[in-house]
Amino acid sequence: MEITVQEFKHCDMITVKGRVDSATAPQLAQALEAANEAGKYKLVVNMAELEYMSSAGFRALLAAQRNCKRYNRGEVVLVSVPDRIREALELAGFTELFKTFDEPLLAVGHF
């Protein structure tokens, strides 16, 4: 798994590549927490090159959404979610907790 962070004027984009499972989810959780600690609560998680995510990854996203929503207009949104991962998120009832966008620019423009 590989994580890169890109800063925009009104939000940060966190791009996650590869596979998120119980072994790698702590790294994702850490990246999301680091953003919060830096005062960033408007986060776009770009999943375009994400191959796999288990419920350990869902847990990291849920914790981040809780932390971000505590702040005024803070929010985690998801972009370019691959089909298989979208289906699992839907099954888990997570798609109601996260706005999702098809294109990074649309997600960034949301903030």
């Binding site: 288990s54 419920s55 869902f58 847990r59 849920l62 959404q65 809780r66 929503k69 888990a92 907790l97």
Partner: peptide
């Protein structure tokens, strides 16, 4: 969001 529990999700 505030009431969502993550436990049991894997089994589900």
């Amino acid at each position: 969001l505030s009431e969502r529990k993550i436990g049991g999700l894997g089994i589900f």
